[in-house]
Nucleic acid binder design. Structure first.
Lengths: 195, 195
DNA sequence: TATTTTTCCTAAAGACTTTAGGCAAAGTCA
DNA sequence: TGACTTTGCCTAAAGTCTTTAGGAAAAATA
């Protein structure tokens, strides 16, 4: 009965660790309680349900990922920014597979709107400033970036590219080059920004 | 005790239906048994475990998806083939969200190798024949296509593009145009194939 | 200090998974 | 056809996870 001072935030963070260790789909209230040195029922003072816990982990991961993305994009522009942003997603999926899986959890629209999701779009928009796109091209490009980054990270994480030549790494560089070329050619001026 | 003639294949198909109705993560042996008009324990004559059931549903979905992709690509070339292939994935995710989620289930490498996964790569390669890429560009392009198709379908399904202007549909057309342009520019001849 | 709130606990009910053992239907073979 | 084996379904039961209810002690508040 020594009180441990658990909070929903702390539980989300511990849950994120647990997800990385055993997989997001195996995060249970039982396992988390054990990890925190507490009985299962005690968790229900802090979370409403296991689903609620999973949502909190998802929000935690989305936020952490947005923080990293913001850090990577700051002070960079053009292709540098594009590569830095892409690497954040790819590296996060590799370093924190459980959190990455959590970040893909389906959220209801109110929760999604209050999540760090919009920050991710904003960061993609910031990167695209270097390519001088108008609307609606910029929005399309935001979605393309999201699709490629998420799709690549997801397939890479799933092992779709492993045990096969060439290296996943090479395809990733090639993909970033291709995206840069594509976005540059979409620019109204149709010129590459200065290196 | 009227015997229903269940088989692992039939259970996978019923499981796929169930996944579309309630979501892949809520597919349980209990629910499937109820749906088949059988007691839970009876399922274990056909499947080893719930995990085994999920794997079978995943394989079912991958196969069905590959069949559709093959059908769409047959008799088409160039951009037509690219668009047709992309639409298969996008439409499948929309029509069969549970099956699409199942198709993303992580499989161990032996199972993955025996799945329809390789057929998907082959179909992407077939589409890319129209762009006359050499190696390793073709492999990179296969991966890019996989990333974009999967990423877009996944985000679209997650509602990331809904309730927002412009329409997801427009971004999809734009994306396919962009991919076509990109692949054409990667071609050694650097010329667009005839329309 | 007295009171209220919070955080932990034990207990218990309900759902899902999985194994064990039994019985009758379906398939096999004289 | 009748005996034998196999198969597919059943009931029963044990284990895990979720969730609620109610109680006791620590922490916060007045």
């Amino acid at each position: 009965m020594a009180r441990l001072g658990l909070t929903p935030q702390r539980l989300a963070a511990e849950g994120a660790e647990l997800a990385d260790e055993v997989g997001f789909d195996r995060v249970t209230a039982s396992a988390l309680a054990q990890r925190c040195g507490v009985k299962v029922a005690s968790l229900y003072a802090h979370i409403r349900s296991t689903q609620d816990l999973k949502v909190r982990i998802a929000l935690f991961a989305l936020n952490e990922l947005a923080d990293r993305a913001a850090e990577a994009v700051a002070g960079r522009a053009g292709k540098d920014a594009l590569v830095a942003l892409g690497n954040v997603y790819r590296d996060y999926a590799r370093e924190h597979p459980g959190r990455y899986a959590a970040s893909q959890l389906r959220l209801d629209s109110a929760t999604a709107a209050a999540s760090a999701g919009p920050r991710h779009s904003q960061l993609a928009r910031a990167v695209l400033r270097g390519y001088h796109l108008g609307e609606p091209e910029q929005t399309h490009a935001v979605r393309l970036l999201g699709s490629v980054f998420h799709g690549f990270a997801s397939l890479d994480l799933g092992g779709a590219f492993s045990h096969s030549v060439p290296d996943s790494e090479e395809s990733w560089s090639w993909t970033l080059d291709a995206l840069d070329a594509l976005l540059s050619s979409q620019s109204p001026s149709n010129r590459r920004p200065p290196h």
